[in-house]
Every structure is written in C-alpha cells, then in structure tokens.
Amino acid sequence: MAVYQVSVLLVLKFQGRSLLNLEHDTNKHSGQVVHTMIFNSFILCQIFDAFNARKPDEFNVFRGITKNHCFMGIVGVTVLLQVVIINFLGKYASTVRLNWSQWLISVVIGFISWPLAVLGKLIPVPKTHFWVARVEDLEQ
C-alpha cells in the first residue's frame, strides 16, 4: 500500500499540472491545486485503507462494520473535516477549493486501495517467519 501511495503522490507532484489539465492556469494556482490534490488524495487513501486495516486477514472488510460505532464515527468525522479543510479553511491550511472532477479523482485514488488490498491478501505468506526459522536452525 505504501508503494502505491508514494507512487501516486509522486506522479501527482511531478506530472499533476499536465494530468489535471492545469497548464493554462497560473503557476501559483496550478501549484496550489496540485498540492491540495496531493493532500486530499493522501488523506482519502488513509481513510480507505483504514477499512482494510480493520480486517487484515479477511477479504470482506465490511463485515460487522455497522456494529463498530467508534470506527464509523472516526471515519465520518475525518471525511467531514477533510471536506471542511479543503472547501473552507484554505487560508489556514494552504489549500484551494477543488472542483468535482478533482474530488472524484482523489476518491478514485483512495478507492484503488481496496482492490489492491484484495490482491495483497492473495499473496501466500508462510506460517513461520523467515528469521524465526533461521534461528531455530541455528539452535539445532
């Protein structure tokens, strides 16, 4: 997940102006939009990944989610704060308002963590860790 997030954020940092069609904006405004997109995408990646972290060994990360009021509250407050920060606290948070397509791009970037987590769960992992097996071999 870290590799995915770092890759996406680096692509936004270095290719964001062209990918987001901001070449005709002023350098200052396009830079602010790119930095806001990086911030927004990072936070949304963390929110989507929080669902994966709830059930690291299960494919259905939503099982029992409605019973976990604390988790739902934290996610809800985080999403609400993110919207407020982006839309209303730009002066204090050094962000600019994003349009709907930029919000959609940020949400899609975060959403991709769900199928990536499923793919990661398909990778077989040995029952014993490599270093534990090696220590046991040395003791014999």
Rank of each mutant, 00 (worst) to 15 (best):
M1L: 14
Y4V: 11
Q5P: 03
Q5N: 13
Q5D: 02
Q5Y: 02
V6P: 10
S7Q: 03
V8W: 09
L9N: 04
L9A: 04
V11W: 05
L12P: 02
K13N: 02
K13W: 12
K13E: 05
Q15V: 10
G16F: 03
G16K: 07
R17A: 05
S18A: 12
L20N: 07
E23K: 02
H24F: 05
T26V: 08
N27M: 13
N27C: 01
N27R: 10
K28L: 15
K28M: 14
H29W: 11
H29Q: 07
S30G: 01
S30M: 10
G31F: 05
Q32L: 12
V33K: 08
V34H: 11
V34D: 06
T36C: 05
F39L: 11
F39K: 07
F39W: 11
S41A: 13
I43S: 06
I43E: 09
C45E: 04
Q46G: 02
Q46N: 09
I47R: 09
F48K: 04
D49W: 02
A50K: 11
A50E: 00
A50V: 07
A50G: 08
F51W: 00
F51S: 06
F51P: 00
N52Q: 12
N52I: 06
F59I: 14
N60Y: 01
V61N: 06
R63Q: 08
G64T: 01
K67T: 13
H69M: 14
H69N: 10
H69G: 11
G73K: 11
I74A: 04
V75A: 01
G76S: 01
G76L: 11
V77F: 13
T78Q: 06
V79G: 09
L81E: 09
L81M: 12
V83T: 05
V84N: 09
I85P: 00
I85T: 12
I85A: 07
I85S: 01
N87G: 05
N87L: 12
N87M: 10
F88P: 03
F88A: 07
F88V: 13
L89F: 14
G90N: 03
G90L: 09
Y92Q: 12
Y92P: 04
A93H: 00
S94G: 05
S94T: 13
T95Y: 02
V96N: 10
V96K: 00
R97H: 06
R97P: 03
R97A: 10
L98R: 00
L98N: 08
L98D: 02
W100T: 14
S101P: 07
S101G: 01
S101N: 04
S101M: 14
Q102L: 14
Q102I: 07
L104G: 02
S106F: 00
V107G: 00
V107I: 15
V108S: 06
V108M: 11
V108K: 06
I109P: 06
G110S: 11
S113L: 15
S113T: 15
W114K: 08
L116A: 00
L116I: 15
A117C: 09
V118E: 04
V118C: 09
L119A: 15
G120D: 03
G120Q: 02
L122R: 07
L122W: 03
P126V: 14
K127G: 02
H129R: 12
F130D: 01
W131P: 00
A133M: 09
E136V: 14
E136T: 10
D137W: 04
L138F: 13
E139Q: 12
E139W: 13
